[in-house]
Amino acid sequence: MNVLIVYYSLYGHIAAMAQAVAEGVNQVPGMVATLRRVPETLPEDVIEKMGAKQAQKAQSHVPVCTLEELESAEAIIFGTPTRFGNMCGQMRQFLDSTGQIWNRGGLVGKPGGVFCSTATQHGGQETTLMSSIQTLLHHGMVVVGLPYAFAGQMRVDEITGGSPYGATTIASGDGSRMPSENELDAARFQGKHIATITQKLRS
Rank of each mutant, 00 (worst) to 15 (best):
T98A: 08
Y8A: 05
S117T: 10
P81T: 03
R92Y: 09
T127N: 10
Q125K: 05
V142L: 10
G85N: 08
A151L: 14
V6D: 06
P81V: 04
N2Q: 15
H61L: 06
A33H: 06
G173Q: 14
K192I: 04
K192S: 15
E68W: 02
A55I: 08
H13E: 07
T82Q: 03
L107G: 08
P81D: 01
A167Y: 04
M17E: 05
Q54D: 14
T118I: 03
E23G: 07
E158I: 15
L201C: 02
I170F: 01
E68R: 15
T168Y: 03
A151H: 12
Q90L: 05
Q121I: 13
V108N: 03
K53S: 14
P29H: 09
G113S: 05
D96G: 11
F78N: 05
L67I: 14
G124W: 15
P43M: 09
V64C: 08
G123Y: 05
H122K: 07
V38H: 00
T169R: 02
V25G: 03
A171E: 01
Q100W: 11
G79T: 03
A58V: 04
A15S: 11
G24P: 06
K200L: 06
L107N: 10
Q93H: 12
T128N: 10
Q121L: 13
N2P: 15
G51R: 06
C116P: 01
F78D: 01
S9L: 02
M141A: 01
E183A: 05
V144I: 09
V144C: 13
Q56I: 12
A195L: 07
S180A: 15
T196A: 10
Y165C: 01
I197V: 08
M91C: 11
L42F: 11
T66E: 15
C116V: 09
N86L: 15
H193F: 05
Q199I: 01
R202T: 13
M130Y: 09
T198D: 02
I47R: 09
E158A: 15
G123P: 05
K192T: 04
S117F: 04
M154D: 12
F150K: 09
L201W: 12
F189N: 09
S131K: 12
M87I: 12
A55P: 13
V21Y: 03
W102I: 13
G140S: 00
P164G: 04
G99R: 07
V38R: 01
G123I: 11
F115G: 01
S163K: 00
P111L: 00
E40Y: 03
K57T: 15
R92P: 07
G89P: 06
E40P: 08
P43N: 13
L10A: 13
Q27F: 07
T120M: 10
R202Y: 08
C88P: 05
G124C: 13
R37G: 09
A55V: 06
M141L: 00
I101H: 03
H193C: 00
T41K: 00
N26F: 07
E126C: 03
P147V: 02
T82S: 04
A16N: 07
Y11W: 09
T34Q: 14
I159A: 04
Q153D: 01
H138A: 14
P63G: 08
N182R: 12
G166Y: 01
T34D: 13
I76M: 02
G89D: 07
